[in-house]
Design a binder for these strands. Structure first.
Lengths: 211, 211
DNA sequence: CGGTATCCAATATGATACTG
DNA sequence: CAGTATCATATTGGATACCG
């Protein structure tokens, strides 16, 4: 990307991460941790391999990521965020929080991944009742599965299945994510296809959307 | 910009504001308030008029800005941020804070404006001694002038001159801004050309960089 | 002042093939 | 698997001219 040529920290930041795909690559590295080229490609549906390759070089030159030779079992290169790259987390959080307002439009051919299901509640909701015992919620949205644990004032999340969840939320991504991030209420979520198994009222009352 | 086609709030946000120039247009509207096409053009050195025009239409379609007919004295269209547009302020703050790390490279042909001098201390520094009487600091960097007032726990800023400042900081933008945002110390700033008039130690001790 | 219109250059996309 | 390479096409951006 050509530089904006402005001595302003916002313009400077955009000189580095304003290119198409760049911030989404950082998102993947942030959500996955160090990972391989193919992992990144899978997490970025639609990106061309040559473009991904170019961007990774640019990010390395800018000092945002590093290439590490993985130890024997993997025996390949892992891309990882440096400290400067990790420092973008607040930017992605702010952007993602702002972007929630556009999540009501779920288009039929949108890609969707368990990882994106997981980060939303972890980043955009908190535990309003830190002293209550931890609660585990299984999320199933548009076929993708994630687990959140609410407890100690925080919400933690990961992709996958829980053995014995206190609550299961299942339905279209728009319903599950909308409910968890506070964009819509339980009635509206149910109206667009959410189903619950377990003590929904108790657990959901603890979730407080940030902002 | 073509959509990323991902049901993820970060990708959705970038679908709307990920285009080149878009966030800088929002920056200008945020720093200036409602303003005219020409004002935006002046605040965005390097932007082509057709591109600015296109972006303004896109931003209007996305609901981030509105076009208002200004009252008689001005008699033209004013562009203003809507609530959705104003809500981008945390994004720009996060991006600008992150971008400070690239401000040590000041290129000779960079554009620089008083407004960009003003927002940095206001956004990225706080008053560490809220109970002390307010202090007024005149900034002069690379020929651009701004005033900051430190008091009540906050730092406020505007472009222009102060009648009777407690301190005058003058020098290259890199020195003045670096000092105010905590990137460099007073000795380093002096070393690259900063001059001070007034009680520098007292006033600067009150400035605490955020983050 | 507030834009449109036009043209050229640069970049992105997408497909596919190829290599160690 | 982890890319690099190449090519065709589409879209975008930049510069400039122009106009009500």
């Amino acid at each position: 990307m050509r530089s904006y040529g402005q001595y302003c920290s916002i313009a400077r930041a955009l000189d580095v991460v304003g290119d198409r795909w760049t911030l989404l690559i950082v998102r993947e590295l942030l959500l996955r941790g160090p990972c391989r080229f193919t992992d990144l490609k899978n997490g970025l549906p639609g990106v061309a391999t040559n473009l991904l390759s170019t961007r990774l070089k640019e990010l390395e030159d800018a000092g945002l990521i590093s290439r590490e030779d993985a130890p024997p079992p993997v025996a390949t290169v892992l891309y990882a965020l440096t400290d400067d790259g990790l420092a973008l987390e607040p930017v992605l959080k702010a952007l993602g929080l702002w972007g929630l307002r556009f999540m009501d439009a779920e288009r039929p051919d949108d890609a969707f991944q368990a990882r994106w299901l997981a980060y939303a509640p972890a980043w955009f909701a908190t535990d309003a009742d830190p002293d209550a015992p931890p609660a585990v919620v299984q999320l199933i949205a548009s076929g993708e599965e994630a687990v959140i644990e609410i407890g100690g004032g925080e919400v933690r999340a990961r992709a996958g299945r829980a053995a014995d969840p206190d609550l299961v939320l299942e339905g279209p991504a728009r319903a599950v994510l909308g409910l968890l991030t506070g964009v819509i209420g339980i009635d509206a979520a149910t109206g667009i296809g959410l189903t619950t198994r377990g003590r929904a009222a108790d657990v959901l009352a603890r979730l407080r959307p940030v902002g």
